[in-house]
Design a protein around this nucleic acid. Sequence first.
DNA 1: CAATCGTCCTGCGGGC
DNA 2: TGCCCGCAGGACGATT
Length: 269
Amino acid sequence: MPELPEVETIVQQLRHKILGKKIIKVDVLDAIVDAGVSKLSPFRIKEVYRRAKYIIFALDTGKFILTHLGMTGQFFFVEKSQIEGKKCFYQPHQVAKFMFEDGSLLSHNNLRKFGSMQLLEEKELQKVLSKLGPEPLEESFTPEKFRQLLTKKPKANLKTTLMDQSFIAGIGNIYAQETLYYVGISPLRKVGSLSSEEVKKLYDSIRHTLKEGIKYKGASVDNYINLEGQGEFQKHLAVYGKEYCPKKHSLKKLALGGRGTSYCPICQK
DNA sequence: CAATCGTCCTGCGGGC
DNA sequence: TGCCCGCAGGACGATT
């Protein structure tokens, strides 16, 4: 499922494929995509950026396209030479198709349709983004900021809180579990039970794990792909989807907040 | 305030 | 062998 590193990878790759190029036609093929997107052309995308797990396209018309991939959203870019001879380029579970003036194409696919693509005015966009917690990789997110943030929810479950987008942005089920394994902290702990030493280690681990995810272009579990195909981070997972931890201990599986969670009862206390 | 539950959707795996 | 059922899960709203 695309989380911060997966979305960041897609955004970086999208940037040098589509920025500034003229879009002459958009086909909207499913209701998870705002029908208004098909009425914009011709237009250009001025900037692509990420906030939490959202991808935001800033258009030259002054409006914004806000996209969430859900669990199974994909972007697939196709050069003109790969399309030649085909009347329409089809991908399984295609929900929208952006056609560029130079003959290339961007396909947006979503198998389970948990995602969305909305056309918004700047004020509407800001309203959605204002509900999100801080970006963990931004410089302004200091250890002290993290410590202060944690004091707001002392009684809440730690893992659920790390995945709460209004608390901290971009962490989902994979990176929450990986991060907790590396600091040796059980996902069952309450936020307020962390020592100041554990808070610092957790801060470092969150940033390190997310950066590793970006370095390997995301974890291809479920059907995640970036614009160049599969990521590599799935090869470096310690506990997510595993039976044994790196030290060969048997992992425990449980549901937290309705989400599958595996952790090592020996390494994580 | 925190946790849980239902909802959206579809492929897949288990069971018979 | 083949079919049916139920599960997984990000975000959000409603409920406990």
